[in-house]
Design a protein around this nucleic acid. Structure first.
Lengths: 325, 325
DNA sequence: CTGTTAGCGCTTTCAG
DNA sequence: CTGAAAGCGCTAACAG
């Protein structure tokens, strides 16, 4: 160690002083101080590579994000960083690549860096769940999934409870009547969208049994744009239409279009959606949404990656309803 | 190397075969194939730590993101990953921490990992530009800033040309008349917001000189909500109000509120904003926006970090106008 | 308290 | 074409 030579002390002393291990080594406090001061003066930066190589652990978790541009994942990442900081772990965040081959490369690189564990945020659109789980099987370190995609993967994961969220939304909407529930899909092929629709259907079936009345559920694809006539046709006079966006952006688009057409939230329609992005709070009361417990998800995911294998399993977390009509 | 022992060949041969250097070493092709097959069979993963330690370079760039939840940065990150892949570099993405102390820690950790360069996406809200630039000075590797915050920092950076963007927006709006330009601010303290307002003011001054007519510019803070009366008061009968959101979300909020109040885009107001987030394309023609050239920014930033010092300087990139009224 | 020693897993050099 | 040897920067064990 160059620093040691310059100061004329042993490498051991330098190493100990720099990591605050002076008590253990019964190192002179004054000396330790001198070493630390000199280290700062010289702009000395320990080489983590060498350290990790020797210790055979990196205190680092890899994080694979299936899409950086999803704001929900962005907020989750912010929380993950805090949680990692608290757990004295570093994070290496990376995208998932644009093709199966790139995803393999990303995965491989993370493991070659000898991360101590991997968190995988949602399934990449180009990679089937089965294939992904098989990939995880090649790891020598713990892998934890985050996201609804992993609800039935059988792998350790932290999952937002969509089933419960749908229940909260339905409970907050006007009951009874003949107007249908309209499930709005911006990207009907997306897994989360289909899954939430399934949850809604199941939920309404349960409602049926209890109220002995048939609540209709209509799925509407609005990817190509919103046609007001389609809404008008579905509506039963005097009753508000019950709209559920498959996520906040979808609900927002509907809101813009309906208001522009002279429909009024609360009178003509009730609107809810998923994820509770914070900027919704600025839109007033015309909209409600079930917020994902992202901070808790982050904490749990990190804890799970760091815990012994036996403690790793699927955890379902419930959301919280924001806003009311 | 364990693999070498198992196969009964030399470490040299294994190393060469695995990195496709067999020609240089004049290694037997059959042997190289055998080594590679065996490596796959055994699930062998070279240790990047050891490799980097010896080579004294990591082929890795650090990326510091000031806010993961900003969708613009998210898209930029996706592009950065592609660009890095193309340049055979890896990326270590990290948040910037929530306080000055955490930012220091993030920075330190990146350098201790011996990244070959750092890209810094926008200035953290809790850290002054001066302080940040000073921090950069402690690096032994190139640092490239990305974002408007660095337009005058004197450090190498890739910057979206807001001045030009304002020009494009103003040019696309109705000319003349007495209605003011209203600049909508959701977070008036934010640097980008103030800077874009400044640009607008300067632009309108230039317009003045040419048309010898005074165009008024009003800044309106809408953080607390949108009051329609404030807009009504500003409007000159028969002329559309010219609205500029400081970013897309801001413009969107205004759109929702104005349409809900019975104002019509095109007739009663013209609305533009910044950044060109892709989901705007779904909102129809009521809105236009200047898109940041994120893909190009990503490519340039990576290239700049990899180029010799003399080639590193500030690059201003122009945006593209999306949508028309 | 300090110095020495022996590596962590890999690449490179140079002599076979 | 192969093998031996040196060493990247650090830590841990142990003998002074």
């Amino acid at each position: 160690m160059e620093l040691a030579r310059r100061l004329g002390v042993s490498q051991t002393a330098v190493s100990a002083a720099l990591r605050g291990r002076e008590r253990q080594l019964r190192l002179d406090a004054a000396l330790a101080g001198r070493i630390r001061r000199e280290a700062v003066r010289l702009g000395y930066r320990p080489n983590v590579l060498a350290r990790s190589l020797l210790r055979r652990r990196t205190d680092t978790l890899g994080v694979v994000v299936s899409d950086f541009s999803d704001p929900t994942f962005g907020i989750l990442l912010n929380h993950l960083e805090s949680a990692a900081f608290a757990a004295r772990q570093e994070l290496i965040v990376t995208g998932c690549g644009a093709s199966a081959a790139e995803t393999d490369a990303v995965w491989e690189r993370l493991l070659r860096r000898r991360v101590d564990g991997v968190l995988w945020i949602d399934r990449p659109v180009h990679l089937g769940l089965g294939r992904l789980i098989r990939l995880w099987g090649t790891a020598s370190v713990p892998v934890v999934g985050i996201g609804t995609a992993f609800r039935a993967a059988g792998a350790p994961a932290v999952v937002f409870d969509s089933e419960d969220a749908v229940g909260q939304l339905v409970a907050a909407m006007p009951r009874g009547g003949r107007s249908p529930y309209v499930f709005l899909q911006e990207n009907p092929g997306a897994e989360f969208s289909r899954w939430r629709l399934d949850c809604l259907r199941r939920r309404l079936d349960v409602g049926d049994a209890l109220s002995s009345r048939r609540a209709r559920c209509v799925a509407m694809n609005i990817a190509a744009g919103i046609k007001i006539e389609r809404f008008a046709r579905l509506r039963v006079a005097g009753e508000p239409l019950r709209l559920l966006g498959d996520q906040d952006f979808t609900g927002l688009r509907a809101l813009v279009a309906l208001e522009a057409a002279g429909w009024h939230a609360g009178r003509d329609f009730a609107l809810g959606s998923f994820d509770g992005l914070s900027w919704l709070r600025n839109l007033g009361a015309a909209f409600f949404s079930v917020e994902q417990p992202l901070e808790e998800m982050a904490r749990r995911a990190i804890a799970m990656a760091l815990s012994p294998p036996a403690a790793r399993r699927i955890e379902m977390l419930r959301g919280r309803l924001l806003g009311r009509m």
